[in-house]
């Protein structure tokens, strides 16, 4: 539904009024942006010293290689593992056997409700001292458990969304349960689930930032080194600004891929509705 259904095409008086609102709102927005910039300037936040690391080759390399690359590595390892976790538990939840269904249900519900931060600290302490890879795996595993639990729901719904006739026809041909699942249902379900899968990548990527509490590598780690370096005169604000921008750009790229994949492989219509206990990313649901 486009916005226009909510209001009439404006007449001359409404148009005049709207123009006033537009100007007022515009002035207000511009004024607040200017105010923020001026205050930051007065605080010396635009001094070259504070921004120097972001134009120095040594630091740009660190941000790209030790920051962006590590962050992406963590996010994608987590998503790959989460897909495995999701498939296993999603199918488990569909099992005909209660002894398989209930434990799977409990595991999925548990990890969907537990804050990622709690899981991260727990796994970090559990892994203990496995050299400097332990923070890395604490982040990856915590994100795997959470995103995997969400994906389990996505898979279940995806498989349920495959028309019933497909499975029935396969059974009629004499296929066994595993065969039906692997050769008939999963391939079709994956197609339906792709957009939801990619938007879960956005969630995972954003959550890698939580890794800073366990000293994980990645963008937040490089950021910590930069803003605690006295050479740059307490440049927390520039650092947060740069890191935030990098995250936004990465996520926008991912979202663009999600939209493209959706258009290319799924079409506009078929939308998967999953009730998500977790972070409900609306981009997981296609525009209607």
């Amino acid at each position: 539904m486009s916005g226009s259904v909510l209001f009439d095409a404006p007449g001359p008086r409404a148009l005049a009024r709207q123009r006033i609102y537009t100007v007022l709102a515009g002035v207000l927005l511009v004024a607040s942006v200017v105010w923020v910039v001026v205050r930051l300037e007065q605080n010396g936040q635009f001094e070259y010293q504070k921004w120097e690391p972001f134009v120095s080759p040594v630091y740009i390399e660190a941000i790209l290689v030790d920051g962006v690359l590590e962050t992406l590595k963590m996010a994608f390892s987590a998503i790959l593992l989460a897909v495995g976790f999701g498939v296993v538990f999603g199918i488990g939840k569909l099992s005909e056997h209660a002894w398989a269904r209930w434990p799977c249900w409990a595991v999925v519900e548990f990890w969907r409700a537990v804050p990622v931060l709690l899981a991260m600290i727990f796994i970090w302490n559990l892994l203990g001292t496995d050299k400097d890879s332990s923070p890395y795996w604490a982040v990856v595993l915590a994100l795997m458990l959470y995103n995997g639990a969400v994906l389990a729901e996505v898979f279940r719904a995806g498989i349920n969304a495959v028309p019933k006739g497909q499975a029935e026809a396969a059974y009629a041909l004499g296929m066994r349960k595993t065969q039906v699942m692997l050769t008939i249902l999963l391939p079709q379900a994956v197609k339906i689930m792709l957009p939801a899968l990619i938007s879960q990548c956005v969630v995972a990527l954003k959550d890698t930032a939580l890794g800073y509490v366990v000293l994980a590598p990645g963008l937040t780690y490089v950021a910590r080194l930069i803003y605690s370096n006295p050479q740059f005169g307490q440049n927390q604000i520039p650092t947060v600004f740069v890191v935030g921008t990098i995250y936004i750009i990465l996520n926008l790229i991912l979202t663009a891929i999600a939209t493209w994949v959706q258009k290319r492989f799924v079409g506009e219509k078929k939308v998967l509705e999953v009730s998500m206990v977790g972070e409900d990313d609306p981009s997981a649901r296609a525009p209607r």
Partner: peptide
């Protein structure tokens, strides 16, 4: 490779910083 690329990028955008040395 990435350093070289990054350095090039940085130096073309603005004065080249020399932090961290």
């Amino acid at each position: 490779g990435m350093t070289a690329a990054a350095a090039l990028l940085a130096c073309s955008l603005t004065a080249c910083g020399d932090a961290g040395e």
